[in-house]
Design a protein around this nucleic acid. Structure first.
Length: 232
DNA sequence: GTCCAGGGTTCGT
DNA sequence: ACGAACCATGGA
């Protein structure tokens, strides 16, 4: 993965600090940098993005370990591996039959596009549109890939994002995906200065922090005991 | 045994 | 444009 070099603290000169930034700052103070996405290469990010669909990350790690130790976490090898074998190898991640097909759809796209390097030249809206065409790639998976594999400034909306922001009254929680994504990007982008890489760094860290809060405090039923956001 | 996890597709209304 | 069933493993 590409590290986020710039410390993603937005400039909040003028006016009152927006709630979205106060939440971000509270999370960053409480948890520190999350160093997302936990992967060594963009391809590993992409594979992980499919494998983690509605699945605990712990199980994804086992599948990725299997792929690595078999030397299959490279584009040509992964794309040529028979679907039956691929499904067997990623079994711990669950839904292994559909996920094998989804991985294949992605690696075929990568091969037909001339590899990850060529795709770097494509503008974000077009790249996002191409990703959404791929079978098994929905909005959240596409945006995870755009942000964490291609370093594009998109906000990844997931269940934790909805749960946490709605619990604090910022949203109702049942808004359409695109609406939430656009709102978050429009609210946060003006606070990130002019550089795109700063927006990338903020979106990267913010999503990672939301997931960490969600996993540790913000499950569906129980209410957050000792939630870091309560003391602000 | 039941519920949930870093979703998406398909098929009903 | 929504709602529900479906996919499947492993941990709590």
């Amino acid at each position: 993965m590409v590290p986020n070099q710039q410390h993603p603290v937005p400039c909040t000169t003028g006016r009152e600090t927006p709630a979205l930034i106060k939440i971000y700052q509270a999370l960053y103070r409480a948890f520190g940098p999350r160093h997302w996405w936990p992967a060594e290469t963009p391809l590993e990010v992409i594979v992980g993005a499919i494998l983690t669909q509605n699945t605990a990350w712990k199980n994804v790690e086992k599948a990725i370990t299997n792929l690595k130790s078999a030397g299959l976490l490279e584009l040509p090898q992964l794309n040529q591996l028979p679907l039956r074998k691929l499904a067997t190898i990623i079994k711990p991640a669950g839904y292994y039959n559909i996920k094998a097909k989804r991985l294949r759809a992605l690696t075929e796209w990568l091969e037909n596009s001339g590899g990850l390097e060529k795709l770097t030249a494509i503008p974000t809206p077009e790249l996002r549109a191409q990703l959404l065409q791929i079978h098994g790639v929905g909005p959240e998976t596409a945006d995870s890939i755009l942000l964490y594999a291609f370093n594009r400034p998109v906000f990844v909306v997931d269940a934790y994002t909805r749960r946490i922001f709605s619990r604090y009254g910022l949203i109702s929680g049942d808004e359409p995906y695109e609406q939430l994504k656009n709102w978050l990007e429009q609210e946060l982008t003006p606070l990130t200065g002019k550089s795109i890489s700063q927006a990338v760094a903020l979106f990267n860290e913010y999503h990672a922090l939301l997931v960490h809060l969600g996993k540790t405090h913000c499950r569906p039923q129980p209410i957050c005991p000792g939630c870091p956001l309560e003391s602000d």
